[in-house]
Simulated scan of single mutants.
Amino acid sequence: MATFLFGILLISFLGYTRCENCVSESRFNELEEIIRVKFQELQNENYELKEKLLALETKLEYYERHRKETPVDKDIGDETDTPEDEGVTNIRNRINGGIESKTIPGKLKRQVSTNVAFYAYLSGKRCYGNHETFIYDVVETNVGNGYNSRDGIFDVPVTGVYVFTVTLVQYPNENIQAEVIVDGVVKGFIFVDYQQNHEIDQASTSIVVHVNAGNHVFIRRGTNSACYVASETNYARTTFGGWLLF
């Protein structure tokens, strides 16, 4: 009898302990959804930080290259600085807080060329992650050398009003969306959805926008999009181009 009563008490105690520590199925599902949403937000934030870091690294590399290659601005016909020139430069530097003009990239001080145009396209099918930059690896035109086929970024060489045009080809049975990014801001969208099975469709969009020298322009995959971007050199190309309007 004592053993029987002890067993009942033990079962009651264990049941009480489980109830104290258990989590209901609805609460568990709710926590699981919260964790999933937070993880997605962190993942999106990580993609955006990577893109900003890449843009900064590309801009820094460009400035460093031009700082080494671009000669110091002088009046036309001057070969060397005279003592009077150095004195004027020193006074100007003190007025400007001691910033030496020789360290400023030539691109920021003056714009040499006003002829800018580029056109590039994908050589084949590609799969891109969320907010990943499209890299158009075949370059047909690159007047001004602003477009970089290694990272897919157009580094604006001259301040002005530009036209940028994008053509997007979807992979069969998949929808594809892309965003036009200008200096870190979404300035345009393009979306292609399939109408029939095994059908390939394409769409184009253009924007006219004022940009400053040193700004970055690129195309990235949107959030409401499939992975694959199609491009066939013979009949349907995914392209990116632009030119200086004025």
Rank of each mutant, 00 (worst) to 15 (best):
C19M: 10
A55H: 00
N130I: 07
R65G: 08
R92N: 07
Y63E: 07
F13E: 01
E86S: 10
N224W: 08
I11R: 03
T239Y: 03
I190W: 09
V186L: 04
A203S: 13
L60I: 03
G160N: 02
N197M: 04
K50A: 11
I176T: 09
L42C: 12
R150D: 08
T205V: 15
G188V: 07
T70M: 08
K102R: 15
D73R: 07
R36H: 13
R221W: 08
Q177H: 15
V182Q: 01
T159C: 06
F28G: 14
R237E: 08
T58H: 13
T165H: 05
T82S: 15
E41F: 01
V211Q: 00
V169Y: 05
V161M: 12
P71L: 07
G7V: 00
V161Y: 04
F246W: 15
I200Y: 10
T58W: 02
F13C: 09
I104W: 07
G184V: 06
E61R: 06
A230V: 04
E84R: 09
E79M: 10
E33H: 07
V209Q: 08
D201K: 13
R237A: 10
V192N: 01
S225C: 03
E20A: 00
I207C: 03
R27T: 11
N148G: 03
R110T: 09
L31S: 05
N212E: 06
R27V: 05
R220V: 00
A230W: 12
I104K: 14
F13S: 01
T80F: 14
L9I: 10
P105K: 10
T82L: 11
N142P: 06
Q202F: 06
T133S: 09
E57S: 12
G146V: 14
L54S: 05
L245D: 11
S206V: 05
T239R: 03
R220S: 08
E25V: 02
F240P: 03
